[in-house]
Simulated assay, not measured.
Amino acid sequence: MTRLLLVRHGQTLWNHISRYQGHTDVLLSDTGREQARLLARRLAAEKVAAVYSSDLKRALETAEILAAPHWLTVKEVPELREIHFGVWEGLTFKEIQEKYRDLAERWYQYPATVRIPEGETFEELKERAYGAILRLVAKHPSDTIIVVTHGGTIRTIICSLLDIDLNHAFHIRQNNGALNIIEFYEGYGVLTLLNDTSHLDCQESR
């Protein structure tokens, strides 16, 4: 059995103000680093064989914080990047609504196939990301591994696992610093934990 600890990166300043990041390489905020440290504390007792990450800095820094207690070096997997938002990258939700209202409405309804100009579809994201996950699982048939990636990417992975129509991806919540757990038995995946942020409770109470 492969135990996949699937993590969304910590918060960035762009997350905080609802600015679309995609492939734009935005750093973690201080809040995001603290989220990663709290999750690292939670996972410190796990017997982790490897830590993998999207090659974008917000995911990579999160992964490095999680890897430190296990004395592991993070391995970058570019296929685990967030969806490419094309011309929307760097814009806030409000700006997108003002400049691209019709396209935005279609994209929120049909993200599987509607393409943002100069960007990609959720179907394309799913193909590259879930394929990468299956390769990592095959590489670690009896291990626990950590994979740090992005909100949209995790949504497509979960949709692929559960055979959910990608057009329903936005019905799956993924908070910054969230932990998901998938157990793979000879390639058959079972989702055992979804969007768990209980390790952040002490942060929220400050």
Rank of each mutant, 00 (worst) to 15 (best):
M1N: 03
L6H: 09
V7K: 03
G10F: 00
Q11A: 09
W14K: 02
N15K: 00
H16D: 12
I17W: 08
I17H: 07
R19I: 02
G22S: 03
G22R: 04
T24N: 03
D25V: 02
D25K: 07
L28I: 06
S29F: 05
T31R: 13
G32V: 11
R33A: 05
E34F: 00
Q35H: 06
R41D: 15
R42W: 15
A44T: 15
V48K: 04
A49L: 01
Y52L: 08
L60N: 11
E61T: 14
T62C: 12
A63F: 15
I65K: 03
A67W: 13
P69Y: 08
H70S: 10
T73I: 05
V74C: 06
K75S: 06
K75Y: 01
K75A: 11
R81A: 08
E82C: 01
I83T: 06
H84M: 00
H84Q: 10
F85S: 01
V87D: 14
V87A: 12
V87W: 10
W88G: 00
F93R: 08
E95S: 02
E98H: 03
E98V: 05
Y100P: 01
L103I: 05
A104T: 02
R106G: 00
R106F: 02
Q109E: 15
P111K: 05
P111V: 04
T113C: 00
V114C: 05
E118M: 07
E120A: 10
T121V: 04
T121P: 04
F122D: 01
E124H: 05
E124I: 03
E127A: 15
A129N: 09
Y130F: 15
Y130D: 15
Y130S: 13
G131V: 12
G131P: 00
G131R: 08
A132Y: 09
I133F: 09
L134F: 00
L136T: 06
L136S: 04
A138R: 14
S142I: 00
T144V: 12
I146E: 14
I146H: 12
V148E: 15
V148R: 14
G151F: 12
T153P: 05
T153L: 09
T153W: 07
T156Y: 10
T156M: 07
I157A: 05
I157L: 12
C159Q: 07
S160T: 04
S160L: 03
L161V: 10
L162R: 13
L166V: 12
H168C: 12
H168K: 13
F170C: 03
I172H: 02
N175W: 09
A178V: 01
A178K: 04
N180M: 07
I181R: 13
I182T: 07
E186K: 10
G189Q: 08
V190G: 00
V190Q: 05
T192C: 07
T192Q: 13
H199Y: 09
H199W: 13
D201E: 15
C202D: 14
S205F: 04
